[in-house]
Protein backbone atom coordinates (compact mmCIF):
# COMPACT_ATOMS: atom_id res chain seq x y z
CA UNK A 1 0.00 0.00 0.00
CA UNK A 2 2.80 2.39 0.98
CA UNK A 3 6.43 1.78 0.10
CA UNK A 4 9.29 4.17 0.98
CA UNK A 5 12.67 3.37 -0.62
CA UNK A 6 15.70 5.31 0.62
CA UNK A 7 13.57 8.45 1.00
CA UNK A 8 15.17 11.73 1.98
CA UNK A 9 13.47 15.08 2.50
CA UNK A 10 15.37 18.31 2.70
CA UNK A 11 13.54 21.59 3.29
CA UNK A 12 14.67 24.89 1.88
CA UNK A 13 17.03 26.31 4.47
CA UNK A 14 18.85 23.01 4.80
CA UNK A 15 16.74 21.16 7.38
CA UNK A 16 17.01 17.42 6.69
CA UNK A 17 13.77 15.97 7.99
CA UNK A 18 14.25 12.45 6.63
CA UNK A 19 17.40 10.58 5.56
CA UNK A 20 17.36 7.23 3.78
CA UNK A 21 14.05 6.01 5.13
CA UNK A 22 12.83 2.65 3.80
CA UNK A 23 9.51 1.37 4.99
CA UNK A 24 6.53 -0.66 3.81
CA UNK A 25 2.95 -0.61 5.04
CA UNK A 26 0.78 -3.40 3.65
CA UNK A 27 -2.86 -3.00 2.73
CA UNK A 28 -5.13 -3.34 5.77
CA UNK A 29 -2.24 -2.90 8.16
CA UNK A 30 -2.08 -0.42 11.03
CA UNK A 31 1.27 1.19 11.79
CA UNK A 32 2.22 3.70 14.44
CA UNK A 33 5.16 6.03 13.77
CA UNK A 34 6.76 7.13 17.02
CA UNK A 35 9.55 9.47 17.94
CA UNK A 36 10.29 12.78 19.56
CA UNK A 37 9.07 15.96 18.00
CA UNK A 38 11.40 16.87 15.15
CA UNK A 39 12.13 13.21 14.40
CA UNK A 40 10.44 13.49 11.02
CA UNK A 41 7.08 11.88 11.79
CA UNK A 42 4.95 14.62 10.21
CA UNK A 43 7.18 14.75 7.14
CA UNK A 44 6.89 11.00 6.66
CA UNK A 45 3.10 11.16 6.79
CA UNK A 46 2.92 14.13 4.44
CA UNK A 47 5.09 12.32 1.92
CA UNK A 48 2.86 9.23 2.17
CA UNK A 49 -0.22 11.37 1.51
CA UNK A 50 1.31 13.17 -1.47
CA UNK A 51 1.10 16.52 0.35
CA UNK A 52 4.84 17.00 0.02
CA UNK A 53 7.37 15.51 -2.36
CA UNK A 54 10.51 13.56 -1.48
CA UNK A 55 13.90 15.14 -2.24
CA UNK A 56 15.42 11.71 -2.99
CA UNK A 57 14.29 8.10 -3.09
CA UNK A 58 10.85 6.88 -4.13
CA UNK A 59 7.46 6.89 -2.45
CA UNK A 60 4.97 4.42 -3.95
CA UNK A 61 1.38 4.63 -2.74
CA UNK A 62 -1.37 2.34 -4.02
CA UNK A 63 0.93 1.26 -6.84
CA UNK A 64 1.70 4.82 -7.97
CA UNK A 65 5.14 6.37 -7.77
CA UNK A 66 4.30 9.77 -6.33
CA UNK A 67 7.48 11.36 -7.67
CA UNK A 68 6.29 10.66 -11.21
CA UNK A 69 2.81 12.13 -10.70
CA UNK A 70 1.91 15.66 -11.75
CA UNK A 71 0.19 18.08 -9.39
CA UNK A 72 -3.25 17.21 -10.74
CA UNK A 73 -2.80 13.45 -10.36
CA UNK A 74 -1.37 13.96 -6.89
CA UNK A 75 -4.46 15.97 -5.90
CA UNK A 76 -6.73 13.21 -7.18
CA UNK A 77 -4.72 10.64 -5.20
CA UNK A 78 -5.23 12.72 -2.04
CA UNK A 79 -8.98 12.25 -2.44
CA UNK A 80 -8.49 8.52 -1.83
CA UNK A 81 -6.51 9.12 1.35
CA UNK A 82 -8.04 10.43 4.54
CA UNK A 83 -5.66 12.76 6.36
CA UNK A 84 -6.11 13.92 9.95
CA UNK A 85 -4.01 17.03 10.43
CA UNK A 86 -2.19 17.82 13.63
CA UNK A 87 -3.59 21.36 13.53
CA UNK A 88 -6.97 20.10 12.22
CA UNK A 89 -7.09 22.54 9.27
CA UNK A 90 -10.76 23.27 9.81
CA UNK A 91 -12.43 26.20 8.09
CA UNK A 92 -13.80 28.56 10.70
CA UNK A 93 -16.20 30.39 8.40
CA UNK A 94 -18.50 27.36 8.02
CA UNK A 95 -20.23 24.89 10.30
CA UNK A 96 -19.29 21.30 11.11
CA UNK A 97 -21.48 19.84 8.39
CA UNK A 98 -19.96 22.06 5.69
CA UNK A 99 -16.42 21.34 6.88
CA UNK A 100 -17.00 17.61 6.49
CA UNK A 101 -18.75 18.12 3.14
CA UNK A 102 -15.73 19.93 1.62
CA UNK A 103 -14.00 16.83 0.14
CA UNK A 104 -17.32 15.68 -1.36
CA UNK A 105 -17.93 19.07 -2.95
CA UNK A 106 -14.49 18.86 -4.51
CA UNK A 107 -15.25 15.36 -5.76
CA UNK A 108 -18.47 16.69 -7.30
CA UNK A 109 -20.83 14.36 -5.42
CA UNK A 110 -24.59 14.94 -5.67
CA UNK A 111 -26.15 16.94 -2.86
CA UNK A 112 -28.29 14.17 -1.37
CA UNK A 113 -25.61 11.50 -1.50
CA UNK A 114 -23.15 13.97 0.00
CA UNK A 115 -25.51 14.89 2.85
CA UNK A 116 -26.05 11.19 3.60
CA UNK A 117 -22.32 10.52 3.77
CA UNK A 118 -21.61 13.63 5.85
CA UNK A 119 -24.20 12.57 8.40
CA UNK A 120 -22.78 9.03 8.48
CA UNK A 121 -19.26 10.39 9.07
CA UNK A 122 -20.44 12.79 11.79
CA UNK A 123 -22.36 9.96 13.41
CA UNK A 124 -19.27 7.75 13.38
CA UNK A 125 -17.27 10.31 15.37
CA UNK A 126 -20.20 11.17 17.64
CA UNK A 127 -20.83 14.71 16.35
CA UNK A 128 -24.11 14.21 14.51
CA UNK A 129 -25.97 16.36 17.03
CA UNK A 130 -23.49 19.21 16.53
CA UNK A 131 -23.62 19.40 12.72
CA UNK A 132 -24.69 23.07 12.75
CA UNK A 133 -22.01 24.12 15.23
CA UNK A 134 -19.21 26.40 14.08
CA UNK A 135 -15.71 25.04 14.78
CA UNK A 136 -14.95 27.78 17.33
CA UNK A 137 -17.83 26.47 19.43
CA UNK A 138 -16.28 22.98 19.53
CA UNK A 139 -13.80 21.76 22.14
CA UNK A 140 -10.31 20.61 21.14
CA UNK A 141 -11.39 16.99 21.21
CA UNK A 142 -14.49 17.75 19.14
CA UNK A 143 -12.42 19.63 16.58
CA UNK A 144 -10.14 16.61 16.37
CA UNK A 145 -13.12 14.34 15.76
CA UNK A 146 -14.51 16.76 13.17
CA UNK A 147 -11.21 16.52 11.33
CA UNK A 148 -11.47 12.71 11.47
CA UNK A 149 -15.02 12.88 10.09
CA UNK A 150 -13.75 14.95 7.16
CA UNK A 151 -10.96 12.41 6.59
CA UNK A 152 -13.32 9.44 6.41
CA UNK A 153 -16.22 11.04 4.53
CA UNK A 154 -14.75 10.01 1.17
CA UNK A 155 -14.54 6.39 2.45
CA UNK A 156 -10.80 6.16 1.86
CA UNK A 157 -8.90 2.86 1.83
CA UNK A 158 -6.13 4.57 3.70
CA UNK A 159 -6.20 6.82 6.73
CA UNK A 160 -3.20 8.86 7.83
CA UNK A 161 -3.29 10.74 11.11
CA UNK A 162 -0.66 13.14 12.44
CA UNK A 163 -0.61 13.10 16.27
CA UNK A 164 -4.36 12.46 16.57
CA UNK A 165 -4.08 12.14 20.35
CA UNK A 166 -1.79 15.10 20.90
CA UNK A 167 -3.07 17.72 23.36
CA UNK A 168 -5.95 15.51 24.43
CA UNK A 169 -6.55 14.26 27.95
CA UNK A 170 -6.26 10.52 28.55
CA UNK A 171 -9.95 9.70 28.22
CA UNK A 172 -10.30 11.60 24.97
CA UNK A 173 -7.12 10.05 23.65
CA UNK A 174 -8.42 6.55 24.37
CA UNK A 175 -11.66 7.28 22.53
CA UNK A 176 -9.76 8.53 19.49
CA UNK A 177 -7.45 5.51 19.54
CA UNK A 178 -10.44 3.19 19.67
CA UNK A 179 -11.94 5.05 16.73
CA UNK A 180 -8.84 4.34 14.62
CA UNK A 181 -8.83 0.72 15.78
CA UNK A 182 -12.41 0.41 14.55
CA UNK A 183 -11.45 1.76 11.11
CA UNK A 184 -8.60 -0.73 11.01
CA UNK A 185 -11.01 -3.55 11.87
CA UNK A 186 -13.11 -2.85 8.77
CA UNK A 187 -10.04 -3.13 6.55
CA UNK A 188 -8.79 0.43 6.27
CA UNK A 189 -5.00 0.86 6.17
CA UNK A 190 -4.05 3.16 9.05
CA UNK A 191 -0.80 5.05 9.44
CA UNK A 192 -0.57 7.35 12.42
CA UNK A 193 2.08 9.19 14.33
CA UNK A 194 2.20 9.67 18.06
CA UNK A 195 4.62 10.31 20.87
CA UNK A 196 2.18 8.90 23.38
CA UNK A 197 3.26 5.44 24.59
CA UNK A 198 -0.12 4.66 26.10
CA UNK A 199 -1.81 5.11 22.73
CA UNK A 200 0.62 2.75 20.99
CA UNK A 201 0.11 0.17 23.72
CA UNK A 202 -3.63 0.42 23.34
CA UNK A 203 -3.49 0.16 19.53
CA UNK A 204 -1.35 -2.94 19.77
CA UNK A 205 0.01 -2.51 16.25
CA UNK A 206 3.38 -2.48 14.56
CA UNK A 207 5.46 0.53 15.43
CA UNK A 208 8.16 2.34 13.48
CA UNK A 209 10.40 4.50 15.60
CA UNK A 210 11.98 7.54 13.99
CA UNK A 211 14.97 9.38 15.38
CA UNK A 212 16.62 12.34 13.71
CA UNK A 213 15.09 11.48 10.36
CA UNK A 214 16.08 7.79 10.32
CA UNK A 215 14.23 4.61 11.17
CA UNK A 216 15.63 3.76 14.60
CA UNK A 217 13.83 0.52 15.16
CA UNK A 218 10.79 -1.37 13.95
CA UNK A 219 9.03 -3.89 16.09
CA UNK A 220 5.69 -5.53 16.65
CA UNK A 221 4.34 -4.92 20.08
Amino acid sequence: MIRFSAVAKRYPGGLEALRGVSLAVEGGEMVAVTGHSGAGKSTLLKLAAGIERASAGSVVVQGQNLGALGEGALAVLRRRIGFVFQDHKLLFDRNAFENVALPLRIAGLGRQEAARRVRAALDKVGLLARDKAMPVALSGGEQQRLCIARAIVNRPMMLIADEPTGNLDADYARAIVDLFASFHQVGVTVLLSTHDEASVERLGCRRVALAAGRVAGAEDS
Binding site: G72, A75, V76, R78, F83, K89, L90, L91, D93, I106
Partner: peptide, 16 residues
Protein backbone atom coordinates in the same frame (compact mmCIF):
# COMPACT_ATOMS: atom_id res chain seq x y z
CA UNK B 1 -6.49 31.60 0.99
CA UNK B 2 -7.16 29.27 3.93
CA UNK B 3 -10.07 27.63 2.18
CA UNK B 4 -7.97 27.17 -0.94
CA UNK B 5 -5.11 25.59 0.98
CA UNK B 6 -7.35 23.20 2.89
CA UNK B 7 -9.20 22.31 -0.32
CA UNK B 8 -5.90 21.45 -1.97
CA UNK B 9 -4.92 19.31 1.01
CA UNK B 10 -8.08 17.25 0.69
CA UNK B 11 -7.75 16.75 -3.05
CA UNK B 12 -8.68 19.89 -4.99
CA UNK B 13 -6.74 20.28 -8.23
CA UNK B 14 -5.67 23.68 -9.53
CA UNK B 15 -8.69 23.55 -11.86
CA UNK B 16 -11.03 22.88 -8.93
Amino acid sequence: REEIEVSQLVGATAAD
